[in-house]
Design a protein around this nucleic acid. Structure first.
Lengths: 162, 162
DNA sequence: GTAGATGCAAAACATTTGCATCAGT
DNA sequence: ACTGATGCAAATGTTTTGCATCTAC
């Protein structure tokens, strides 16, 4: 974790940005919640626990900056907010989301499902792919089981997006 | 085109909604611009040409309704706005987007690229897929050619999303 | 000291809602 | 007359911005 911060610090310096305490605190929250898909406000509330004086605007500016430097990923699940997730170094863009339309849970697939598909698109459409976003909407295993057991659709708790 | 409107009219009536002049005008704009990915305001501006008195709220309400009835699709390219596109009847969800990061143009692929992938996800993760969204970000053929010819990155006109 | 970074409040922007009015059956 | 639909303006919620202040080199 510390090494990752160090590496980001270098990356920032290379672009003549500074790793301020606020930026570091924001990055730490992101790193500590790597599994989640936090909104800017989520991040802000978490950062405030250790840095009570940080402003929401700073969090937004930090997230925007990290996003531009491809340190984090800005994603959008179609509810009104942007969400942010750490981007594994080295790992290409092989990382997709499974969103349950019943309970709202978000799972991830860390596999490259699209190698062949990308090749096909590159060749067939002469489109030079840099990145992709793939999201599946459906019913997660848990909700399928609940439905089977209770014979009724399970509890809906949207905006969970854990 | 007229038949499509008729069919939607039935679909609305089946759900005890009415096909009002405003709703019909909105649908016509959507049908006339089936290739585009219009935002709510885009639609509003176009509808106003023939129905100058229509309110933006009505357009929003219509788009929301049509979306719920799966007549149109609400999509999100990550800029701040929702975009809407007609949903081909019969066609499943085999329809993906190629977004050029240089010129902002949006192309579509009307092919089912994910049949195998979906099967794999269904089996491996026990996730019952209902729908998916696949977007490729990259450089379109035109921009590749311009770059090659001029040796410099081509004109950037984001928010085009044609 | 200079340039970038911050916090706050205000602004901007997309979208939704309340409500009085209107239209179609 | 009733019910749903509309237009407008106001409200909402997220994100951005202006600006004075602060911080680090």
């Amino acid at each position: 974790m510390q090494e990752r911060i160090e590496r980001i610090k270098e990356q920032l310096h290379n672009n003549s940005y500074k790793l301020t305490p606020q930026r570091e605190a924001t990055l730490r929250v992101l790193l500590e919640n790597e599994q989640d898909h936090l909104s800017a406000e989520d991040v802000w509330l978490l950062v405030k626990k250790n840095s009570p004086d940080i402003g929401l605007a700073t969090v937004y500016r930090t997230l925007e900056l990290m996003s531009e430097l491809s340190i984090i990923h800005k994603i959008n699940f179609g509810d009104g907010v942007s969400r942010y997730e750490f981007r594994n170094e080295g790992a290409e863009h092989h990382h997709h989301h499974l969103i349950c339309v019943h309970c709202g849970a978000v799972d991830e697939i860390h596999e490259d499902l699209l190698g062949e598909v990308e090749k096909a698109v590159n060749d067939k459409f002469n489109f030079h792919i840099l990145d992709h976003r793939l999201t599946f909407h459906g019913i997660c295993q848990k909700c399928q089981e609940t439905a089977k057991r209770e014979g009724s659709p399970p509890e809906i708790k949207l905006n969970h997006y854990g």
